[in-house]
Design a protein around this nucleic acid. Structure first.
Lengths: 342, 342
DNA sequence: CTGAAAGCGCTTACAG
DNA sequence: CTGAAAGCGCTTACAG
């Protein structure tokens, strides 16, 4: 294995100058840079990252913090992120954490122990970012939520416009004739920050716009993003709201639980109850019935996040905040109501 | 941040002795060990891994190679492995690769570039291990397959007894009165090594034992472990074998595709076709109908793999090969046939 | 059993 | 613009 010493000897320069070339410092003559780069390329030299980091005191890995165990949607982004990072030759360090934990506390701890050069948050709560993200100084990107309002210059974000998309989900149910609509998942709170809450908020706004009565106590049950919680929440909702015809589940994982809950109550989707989810995970194409949903562009989210993060790590570009397209997938889980049951 | 120098000063010993204690070398007096360990604990000292590795020439991370993108079963093991490794304070490096690629080539490459101190293979093909695993010298563990026959002293393995479990899956179908049985997934080959093939082999053996005729060309369709492939394969199978009453899908992901394929052919599971899967992923509890399956003990597989790997990394124990229990889950996807259709 | 010292492969003031 | 040198925090022969 070649070291910087070999490159110095081979190029006729000192190891100091070689180091400067490697780290793209400006104070090197064009001549020296050219020669040294040639030798590096020819010898296929890879700097030893341990030695580098012993000095620099950070590791070369990029950490991905996945907020939510068993969250198929985030996992599908994770896979794309991983593939992309791998193609760029970056090391990746994945940490899963529970949906309810504070990802910023986790990130701060990771920064001090593992010293990654960047962090990708897959899922996150804006509230936690607002509270303590300032303690993190490395480039980060938040995926699935927009951090533009927070104004941190080391935090980019890429997301689907959850509120807008939730509006479309509700609009689609309404368009199909539904007026007795229930919602499963998310939570009502004036606090900023959770994906579920934002989807809920969008949904409520759309219901209001169409002047469809909605009683949060009766027509809504809060739950986390899992099949199990969706299942339990849907059971409660079905008991509270007997005349329900349409349900919006704020995530597909929840929606899967909802389908199951309906079946266990003797209700068929979509014959008895119509259902639309959110995320567009693979399973929605194979579930029985196929699930109507809001499909997020996983690949684009992953790709832009990785590319942005690397640009900022390597060239210190400014943070950016991007929105990614979504599509309404009609599936088979929504029945058109000819006669309004109103 | 404390360094080994601080610990030496505080304990009254030299850094050499402190280093020996840290690395559990035998040539330290009990007295010195006790004192130094006390100081280390009191000061909450964490050795700098970069410095350590600059000498040792390997990184501190444990690499997990996941063979199969979008494989819910492996992902659930991954999560458990990750949590467990995290609790042990280990860094983890996750690499996803396609089901068809050679994981040993990938591992060899990773060893040379990233120098992990251990590798956990989530899924793998024994054939590839046999060919080239000898080129890997760090402690490894293969999960979901047994490597006991290979005789590598740096490779442990933990798995479910796939062949036995597949026998039980078929036995259960037979017990419920099914005689016209089809199989989706796996591949026929005299080659050793693939999980799917082993399950298929077990299934065929059980069919033979019960003297149930089975024509591989007509009653079986090979496919990979995905919903999409399961869907396509099941469509073919249903066309080839019109009188089918029971299907064994060699994985749950495949089974989900099978349910969908049946529905699209106008067949109901279990009224028209009974189905049993394999793995016990979460979906099986929420699918419609709930899927009968062979449930593997994910938590146990993960726990034992991690503990074994760490023991071997830290104390150079011998490799071990363990089998983990499985359970037949009856689900709702199998109908009892009163009258044999024979 | 223990300590002093060399050295792992880099980076970065410092001097020129 | 470049080089010589100190030093990052460890490990490990070597000597005793």
């Amino acid at each position: 294995m070649k070291t910087i010493k070999d490159i110095a000897r081979l190029s006729g320069y000192s190891i100091g100058t070689v180091s400067r070339v490697i780290n793209n410092r400006p104070d090197v003559s064009a001549e020296a840079r050219r020669k040294i780069e040639e030798v590096i390329a020819r010898e296929n030299f890879q700097p030893n990252s341990n030695a580098k980091l012993l000095k620099q005191r950070e590791t070369s890995a990029i950490t991905v913090i996945v907020k939510g165990i068993n969250n198929n949607f985030l996992e599908s982004i994770l896979e794309e992120v991983q593939i992309s990072l791998h193609m760029h030759g970056e090391d990746i360090n994945v940490v899963f954490m529970d949906e309810t934990e504070n990802e910023i506390d986790t990130a701060i701890q990771i920064c001090s122990t593992q010293k990654p050069k960047g962090i990708i948050f897959l899922g996150g709560n804006l509230k936690y970012f607002q509270e303590k993200f300032r303690l993190i100084s490395i480039p980060c990107v938040l995926v699935t939520d927009t951090a533009s309002g927070l104004g941190f210059d080391n935090l980019s974000s890429f997301a689907t416009d959850d509120m807008e998309a939730a509006k479309e989900a509700i609009a689609y149910l309404i368009h199909k004739g539904h007026r007795k609509i229930g919602i499963v998942g998310g939570s009502i709170s004036s606090e900023m920050g959770q994906v579920g809450s934002r989807r809920l908020e969008g949904a409520l706004a759309e219901l209001r716009r169409h002047k469809i009565p909605f009683d949060v106590r009766k027509d809504f049950v809060s739950c986390r993003f899992s099949m199990e919680e969706g299942y339990k929440a849907a059971k409660k909702l079905l008991e509270k709201k007997k005349d329900i015809t349409g349900i919006f589940a704020v995530s597909d994982m929840i929606a899967i639980g909802v389908i199951r809950a309906c079946a266990d109550k003797g209700l068929k989707v979509p014959d008895d109850v119509s259902l639309i989810g959110f995320d567009g995970i693979d399973y929605t194409k194979y579930s029985n019935p196929r699930l109507a949903t809001i499909q997020q562009d996983v690949r684009e989210l992953a790709k832009r996040s990785v590319e942005d993060l690397l640009m900022r790590i390597n060239y210190s570009r400014p943070a950016v905040h991007g929105m990614v397209m979504f599509r309404v997938i009609t599936g088979e889980s929504i029945k058109e109501l000819k006669v309004s049951k109103q």
